[in-house]
Amino acid sequence: MSAALLELDGVSKRFRRKISLGDRIAAKLGAKVETREVRAVENVSLSVIRGETLGLVGESGCGKSTLGRIAAGILPPTSGKASLDGRPVMSESGRHEKLTTRVQTVFQDPFASLNPRRRIGDAIAEGPLAHGLVDHAGAVAYVAEQLYRVGLDPSYASRFPHQFSGGQRQRIAIARALAMKPDLLICDEPVASLDVSIQAQVLNLFLDLRRALNLTAIFISHDLGVVRHLSDRVAIMYLGRIVEIGPSAEIYASPKHPYTQALLTSVPRLNRHREGRRAFRPIAGELPSPLSPPSGCHFHPRCTLATDRCRTEPPQLRSMGSDRHAACHLAE
């Protein structure tokens, strides 16, 4: 196995509600001021190996996008470290500036992630020009090459984002990310806001590019089907923690964690001949607030198998055989 490209080591991210000046004065005077924290990501360690695609799956609000943003160098972790080839992605003190151009991101909403007042050619060329990947003389040809690669006509370079459809815009966003020649591409739900027919096109483009450029990628999605299609390995997140991680074929075939099992049975399928008709059973209860996560295993209030141990002791990720890990006291 080749060495890890991206290493997340005990990464946590807490968001604190901004304390107003009045509250701060009150606190100084001795009043009790509630400081509420959202624990978006809690003590996550994982590594991404060169050349693989890691799928990151979970309900909305489980912290998968936050984890992606930490890996991408957009958010600094509250504790822990994100490093690429052993070097930190962001400076750890001061203004938390991103140190590397080798991680690039494709965002969820292509209508928001492109500056509406910049021609797309300028948008694509901006990063490479700023970091000396291309000089001004070569910029036009470079942009044309990037556009061609994502299946767009190079003559579109002088147009504005509002002249494109959602799928075309996402192609532009991919071209912009790839123009930086990244080693690691982080895709934060890149197809979630697209029509299903367009989704397939963009996913196929992604598959082609991954093969052609030998990309390493983290693919964040709430859609298990999409992730299965793309990923070598899958990590399932629940309320800020990774509950299960392993090769995607194995996880889809025999999920170990009760949450993963529940997620997979709730995926609608066309072909149910063998199982016959089956009522849709959603996971009981709602996602707890990350402001006050449950004690012990975060999933216990919704888990049908929960024991007293689950209510008190948070389970660690344990090895479940060949490269598989699950965080459940009961799984084996």
Binding site: G73, D109, S113, N115, P116, R176
Partner: peptide, 11 residues
């Protein structure tokens, strides 16, 4: 998001 995109380039 486009500001986030610009910052993550990084610019």
């Amino acid at each position: 998001e486009y500001i986030e995109a610009a910052l993550s380039t990084p610019l």
